[in-house]
């Protein structure tokens, strides 16, 4: 593991290379995914401190009871059971709510698409784009603009997940669910069904292609993109 992250969650430059990958939530490519990745590194740093503290106290009590016995039992329990966790949990809970709200809502008018899951492929529709044909296992979106994906299912429960752009949302028969994603830069981003949906689950992958402003219309019209897509860095 990368030692820098134990020092500060902000010194991540060296770490992200280790954990990069086409489906890596730790290699974010948009604001939603980036916020969660930052949350993860911060929680990891806090957890590492807490773990070291608890295990240190445990080993101290186990191996040096003469010294540890000077602390009365009541103080152990009050400090360890209340004073230690509550100041961590309260701010974490507040951050979680604020972050959750910011990921769920957008000020701008999003680019709307639909994702319909079926054993075992995805079909994507573009309701706001007259003439745009349905695409199978490839989702075209504009880069740099928030996208609202409305997700539904034809059969069993699936889950729509593009780890580098944001979290996941289940595709539940009988319901419509929605999620907001953003890709900062043009490029291809891997997507995968995350909820077990039968024997084809492992290969129910799809690709999200973020286009620059001018390339999107061409892609939706079924034309070959003007230039081969470079994977985002």
């Amino acid at each position: 593991m990368c030692p820098a992250l134990l020092v500060s969650p902000l010194l991540l430059a060296g770490c992200e290379g280790l954990v990069a990958g086409p489906l890596s939530a730790l290699d974010p490519a948009g604001p939603q995914a980036r916020a969660v990745a930052l949350l993860w590194w911060s929680m990891l740093a806090a957890a590492a401190v807490l773990f070291t503290l608890v295990m240190g106290l445990y080993l101290w009590a186990l191996l040096r009871p003469e010294a540890a016995a000077k602390i009365p039992a009541r103080r152990w329990i009050i400090f360890g059971g209340l004073v230690l966790p509550l100041p961590v949990l309260l701010p974490l809970g507040v951050i979680a709510l604020v972050l959750g709200e910011s990921i769920l809502r957008t000020g701008d008018e999003p680019f709307r698409v639909t994702a319909h899951a079926q054993q075992w492929h995805w079909s994507f529709g573009y309701p706001g784009q007259p003439g745009a044909a349905e695409t199978i296992d490839v989702l075209h979106i504009p880069a740099g603009r928030t996208v609202e994906v409305t997700v539904s299912s034809a059969d069993v429960i699936h889950s729509f997940w593009v780890p580098r752009l944001g979290g996941k949302i289940d595709a539940i028969p009988g319901r419509e669910t929605r999620i907001l994603l953003t890709a900062d830069d043009p490029g291809g981003y891997g997507g995968q069904c995350a909820e077990y949906c039968g024997t084809g689950h492992s290969f129910m992958a799809f690709e999200v292609i973020a286009h620059p402003e001018e390339g999107l219309a061409a892609a939706l019209a079924g034309e070959t993109p003007s230039a081969p897509q470079e994977p985002a860095e």
Binding site: W60, A68, G80, P85, L92
Partner: peptide, 28 residues
């Protein structure tokens, strides 16, 4: 959020038990 709050809160009684065990060891 309702369930998230309860889920984080459960860490408190867990920590109470863990530190009761550590305190017991310390008084050995």
């Amino acid at each position: 959020a309702l369930f998230s709050a309860a889920s984080t809160l459960v860490a408190v009684p867990t920590a109470v038990q863990i530190f009761a065990w550590i305190a017991t060891l310390a008084q050995r």
